[in-house]
């Protein structure tokens, strides 16, 4: 992927497919590191399945389709000298606390670090892809924090106007862009 924000768009769609009602997308940046965490309350994965999604080539199984999204993110992190982890609790095991947390640490000064890119586009398209899901986005940088919680927007919009109305999405896009552009 040319931008980390494309990995975010890709990985968070797994959470939508896992029927998550809430997805948190957290980016924590220091001067030298970037940690990306995507956490959802979807139906989760079994331990065996977690192994196959991180390394699709470790299995000869052909009956189950395993995507390349997770391995691509893992590679992107590890090629900067960083780390990758994924934890999941299946709904059948614990319906109260089920979900998946994917976390990747990047070293920004490494030659192979992929820039974050247009994260605003990714967030807006995710909201558009799954209007019913609540998204919490927080990007912490050394000098500022950009944040969005769709639950707050829903309180204003009420029941008549959905989040995926174009004017609302445009407002969200501009609101995030303003936060990125604001003077620290």
């Amino acid at each position: 992927m040319k931008e980390l924000s494309l990995n975010i768009l890709d990985i968070a769609q797994n959470s939508i497919r896992a029927e998550a009602t809430r997805i948190e997308i957290l980016i924590d940046e220091t001067e030298t590191t970037l940690r990306l965490t995507i956490r959802d309350n979807g139906y989760g994965m079994s331990e065996d399945f977690v192994k196959t999604v991180t390394d699709p080539f470790s299995t000869t199984r052909t009956t189950r389709k395993v995507g390349m999204g997770i391995p691509l993110l893992k590679l992107a992190a590890e090629q900067t000298g960083g780390t990758f982890s994924i934890r999941s609790v299946e709904r059948s095991v614990d319906p109260e606390h089920c979900g998946t947390e994917t976390s990747a640490l990047f070293y920004k000064n490494h030659l192979d670090f992929t820039p974050l890119g247009d994260v605003v586009s990714s967030i807006v398209l995710l909201i558009r892809a799954s209007e019913k899901t609540d998204f919490v986005f927080r990007h912490t940088m050394p000098d500022r924090t950009v944040a969005l919680d769709t639950r707050e927007l829903r309180q204003v919009l009420g029941e008549e106007v959905p989040l995926d109305e174009y004017e609302v999405l445009a407002w969200i896009r501009d609101m995030l862009k303003e936060q990125y552009a604001a003077e620290a």
Binding site: E152, L153, V156, L157, E160, V161, E165, E167, W171, E178
Partner: peptide, 16 residues
């Protein structure tokens, strides 16, 4: 500035 008041205005405009 994008404010929640502005979002409320969008809501009122879009309702119908």
């Amino acid at each position: 500035m994008k404010t929640l008041e502005e979002l409320a205005q969008i809501r009122d405009r879009m309702k119908n």
